Structures are given as structure tokens and as C-alpha cells.
Simulated assay, not measured.
Amino acid sequence: MIDLGIIGGTGFYKFFESTGERIVETPYGEPSAPVTLATWGGKRIGFIPRHGLHHEYLPHRVPYPANVAALKELGARQILGFNVVGSLSEHVSKGHFLLIDQFIDLTWGRDWTIFDRANGAHADLADPYCGRLRAQAIEALSDSPEVVHPKATALIINGPKFQTKAESRLYNSWGADVINMTQSTEATVAREMELCYVNLSFCTDYGVISEDLAPESGDPPVRHRDVVAYFNDNVARVEAAVRATVAALEDDAECGCRSALEGCWLNTEGHR
């Protein structure tokens, strides 16, 4: 059994030594990859690369319910989701870390809910990330030498294409801080499964409007290879932030996330 689930990119394999892996069957199909097991930060963790071992799952094709369910099947009741994001705000620079607290979801047509049959539930997502875990993560990173934004709003597009400049300028006018293609779906499914979910993001670029946000950077509109290169150049920094966060996350069986669907069911009989 694991204490904590982590969902992130394939670069996470550089962070820990595996003690084994588990192939997990779920009611929602196969996860992106077998769950890698490790002991890390004093905790037994299970890790899933959301895009698969070879990045074979693009954002709109990631099996989100299966990924979250696989970690729950192994005992995790709390999940850390790690993302790389692009900036949409002059206040967020490349190299900054963010503990996302809100999102605007513009995704469509993906496998995004466990409630696709009769007698499901309308999950409450007013505060889509676990406030208890967010507080622990904020405290853990408070002495970090990094710039850490304790709250931020992420704008989630469907992908796999990047956004246009007009779209980015619109999202900026809405007050969104960063842009991403995955985390709203993951957070939604975790809430539907009554799990605690917290997100740590790392800003790798200025999206397609670097001339608006950081003209001094001279960066062209972002390409995927730029994201990968910047992440790889900063792996040590990311690892330190993630390790500090993992070490600080403590479980609490009484957390409100564990009963998040109370009062949300369409039919109160036989839903458990």
C-alpha cells in the first residue's frame, strides 16, 4: 500500500529509484503506464507518468480516471499532481513555481469524469484543490530560495495545439495566471473519487505572447521542444521543490475531500 500518489511527466524518473512497479486494473480501463513504486521523502509513493512511458498520450487522450483510480486502488488517498505551465501574466516568470488554487476549464471531448451513467453526482469544485494539502505545501516551500506563488489561476485548454496570441491575450484579460492542458481534468476526477489533490506547477515559458509578458527575454512563441529543454535544464531545482513538498504532505482521514460528494448525488440510494 502507498501513502501518496504522484502524477507527473516522464522526467520524474530522474528523481527516485524504483523499488518495483504494479500493473493495476481499474473500472475505467488501463492507466497511462504501470505504477512505479518508491520510498521517497519518508513516504511510500506510487508514480504514474500521465502521458505514458514514451509520451504516447497527448493531453486530450490521457486516461485520467484510470490514472487516479490506479493510485487509489494501491491505497493512496492523496495525490500530488505536478505540471509544467506557460505564463499568462506579467507577474509569473519562467522558473517560478506555483501552487494552483483555481482553474478555468476550456477542455472538451475527453475522458474527464467517472459519472457518465445514470445516478451520478454533481461534484462540488468551488475550491478544486485540497486546501489542507495546499497549506502544507505553502509552508514547506516558504523558506525555499525559489519564487513560489502560493495561489494562482490556471487556464486549461484542450490541446494538443498551443493557443493563438489572441486567445492568450483574452485569457490574460480574464485574470488567468498560467496555461496548461491537463490539470483541471485530473483535479476533477480526484474530487469525484473523494481524494485529496494538490498541484505544484513549474513555469517553463511565456506561451505565445512573450513580447507582452517579457519582451526583454527575446523568446519566440513557445514550442514543445522549448518546454522540454527548459525543464531538463532545471531538473535539480524542480526535484528539490517536489521533495520538500512530498515530505510535508500529511494524510488526514477527516479531511473534507473524503466526503466531498455528500449532498451531490442525484440518487441517494445505492451510490456507494
Rank of each mutant, 00 (worst) to 15 (best):
T204Q: 02
C196D: 07
I157G: 07
C196E: 04
G175Y: 00
R191H: 15
N158H: 13
Y206P: 15
M193E: 15
T182M: 05
T188H: 13
F162P: 00
R191M: 12
I209V: 15
G207Y: 08
T182R: 03
T185A: 04
G207Q: 02
E216G: 14
I157F: 07
Y171H: 12
S210I: 05
N199H: 15
E194W: 11
A176K: 01
N172W: 03
T204A: 08
I209L: 06
P160K: 03
M193A: 14
F202I: 05
C203H: 03
P215D: 10
N172I: 02
G175L: 00
T204F: 02
D212F: 15
M181H: 04
N158W: 04
E167S: 01
Q183G: 02
M193F: 11
T185Y: 08
E216P: 11
Y197H: 13
I156H: 07
E167N: 01
C203L: 06
A187L: 14
S210E: 09
M181P: 01
Q183I: 02
S184E: 11
V178H: 06
E192K: 05
F202Q: 09
K161V: 11
I179N: 04
E211K: 14
P215M: 13
E167Q: 07
V198W: 00
S168H: 10
V178P: 01
C196V: 11
G207H: 02
V178R: 05
T188V: 14
T182A: 12
F162S: 14
D212H: 09
Y197K: 04
Q163L: 11
A166W: 10
P160N: 11
A187Y: 10
L170T: 15
P215K: 07
Q163I: 07
M193R: 13
W174Q: 06
S168E: 11
F162L: 07
S173L: 00
V189G: 11
E192D: 02
L200P: 15
P215A: 15
I156L: 06
P215W: 10
R169V: 02
D205C: 13
D212K: 13
E186Q: 01
R169L: 08
T182N: 09
E194C: 07
E192I: 00
V178E: 03
S184I: 00
R169C: 00
G175E: 02
C196F: 04
I157S: 09
E186W: 03
R169M: 12
L213P: 10
T164E: 12
Y197G: 04
N199P: 06
Q183M: 03
N158R: 12
V189M: 13
I209N: 06
V208M: 08
V198L: 14
W174S: 05
Y171L: 01
E192P: 00
N158Y: 04
L200W: 00
S210D: 15
T182I: 03
V178K: 12
D177S: 13
